[in-house]
Amino acid sequence: DHDVVPEDKFQETLHLKEKEGCPQAFHALLSWLLTQDSTAILDFWRVLFKDYNLERYGRLQPILDSFPKDVDLSQPRKGRKPPAVPKALVPPPRLPTKRKASEEARAAAPAALTPRGTASPGSQLKAKPPKKPESSAEQQRLPLGNGIQTMSASVQRAVAMSSGDVPGARGAVEGILIQQVFESGGSKKCIQVGGEFYTPSKFEDSGSGKNKARSSSGPKPLVRAKGAQGAAPGGGEARLGQQGSVPAPLALPSDPQLHQKNEDECAVCRDGGELICCDGCPRAFHLACLSPPLREIPSGTWRCSSCLQATVQEVQPRAEEPRPQEPPVETPLPPGLRSAGEEVRGPPGEPLAGMDTTLVYKHLPAPPSAAPLPGLDSSALHPLLCVGPEGQQNLAPGARCGVCGDGTDVLRCTHCAAAFHWRCHFPAGTSRPGTGLRCRSCSGDVTPAPVEGVLAPSPARLAPGPAKDDTASHEPALHRDDLESLLSEHTFDGILQWAIQSMARPAAPFPS
């Protein structure tokens, strides 16, 4: 592969990997390779389809078979030569091979799209000592099968071997295949498990690692696999990028399955594409389908809103127990993405979901129960707010008499603000006073009005108090039968009158 990737590009890729991570280095090298001529790309395919690569990765054979028959990708048995050289000459001794072996032994695996480039050397060096003999053996194999790289107009793939297949390693990572398949204008990513390549439709969760975000852009890794992070704060999961590491605690105790298979379609829109997988259930989501939507993949363990709600429900009964003089119970939860139609709101002032922060849900004790107040519409209280300059209440639009249902020339009671006709409430011909108009209920007259088809109010509507207090003497005590009587009149003013009279009014101040 030294004929494909020059030394300066190799060093530039290593520097970019240390600065921005393996995914960015892979993407940059792939983009550079696509700008080369067809001879360089053909050399790339020839390096990929060597015999030892085909033996190690069985899924490469179907890719090789898909090439046109007129494309010669065979390799000479006596060494490598550029395709432009007409004579089959043995190339001179390859010093770059020693360079590659020494550099890969030092860096474990470079971040390139060629056999030198995919593992994360920093994480491997940190986690190597417990498994040094086995990992050293794996390093000797890295130059042979560490990076199976493929690129063409139909298929483009980048393979990364790992030393996680050490025997006896619980939940060992089998390997990473960062794979971009450009077929019919689409893009897919796969993962390699035990020599087999699994596409998103049959993606397997190998051991402790999972394909957290099938994305090839942005600074985030394709698999949430930063070796420096180790395990999740809650004892979460091992990262795919942690090559040759000792077994780590796999999943939280509440995880239903340690080796679950995540779905390959969004649980909201039932469509495929780039998904984020939940650590607590097999569901996966688009970032845009979450509520609120996320802009980037959160670091650490992530769970959907259903799993978060289940966790909150487990903690909430203990938080609601009476604990005198104790601060509110704080339950730190990872930043969760909410699927459509589901929402768990945190306290005000918290950062938005999706940031690399930890939301704190506070379970406050329930407030003391209070008697429910009568629910009145805002339009129902409008007549009470229509007060004239002299303190006389004006008529609201649409006000109707509670007896006849007519809204023409209605009066407004100064005591309960109900609309009424003087002739309907006082049919006996009582003279109307000039000021202080009161309806039949507030004036103490319980004589029913002779209106055909309208039920008369119940005599129990009024329960006047002592006459010594004029204001308190007109406080009506309405009961269920009074409400039914008012409802039978089918008037809004009657219902409003009952609601206003049912509310307690402050006692009249004593004259000074």
Rank of each mutant, 00 (worst) to 15 (best):
S305A: 06
G398A: 13
L294I: 09
A251H: 09
R295C: 09
A353S: 07
L290F: 15
D356V: 03
S306C: 10
S485L: 10
E343L: 12
S378G: 09
P327Y: 13
P335N: 15
F285H: 14
T311Q: 12
T311F: 13
A419F: 09
G375E: 11
N394V: 11
M355A: 08
G244Y: 05
G300S: 03
R345V: 08
S473R: 07
A507Q: 06
A449F: 01
L437C: 08
Q309H: 09
D481P: 01
W498S: 03
S245E: 07
R438I: 11
Q497R: 01
P433D: 05
L333N: 07
T430I: 08
R432N: 00
C266G: 05
C266L: 06
E489I: 02
R423F: 01
E320C: 13
G398D: 08
P427K: 09
R303D: 15
L483K: 03
P292R: 08
Q257Y: 15
T358Y: 15
S443L: 07
L384K: 08
P433N: 04
D409A: 07
D406F: 00
A370Y: 04
L483T: 03
E274S: 13
H286T: 14
V403N: 13
C277S: 07
G300N: 06
G465H: 14
E296W: 12
D469C: 08
P466V: 13
S369L: 10
R323I: 10
S291Q: 04
V329P: 10
C404Q: 03
V454Y: 12
P335K: 14
P368H: 10
A418F: 01
E330L: 14
Q313T: 10
A353T: 10
P324M: 14
I495G: 02
P324S: 09
G444V: 12
P328H: 12
L381R: 07
S299P: 05
E320S: 12
K362E: 06
D409Q: 10
P249E: 05
K362C: 04
V446P: 09
D271I: 04
C277T: 09
G375L: 01
P247D: 06
W422H: 07
R345L: 08
P256S: 14
G436N: 10
C439S: 01
P332Y: 15
W498C: 02
T331I: 07
S299G: 11
S473W: 04
P466G: 14
V268H: 15
P448A: 05
T301S: 09
C277V: 09
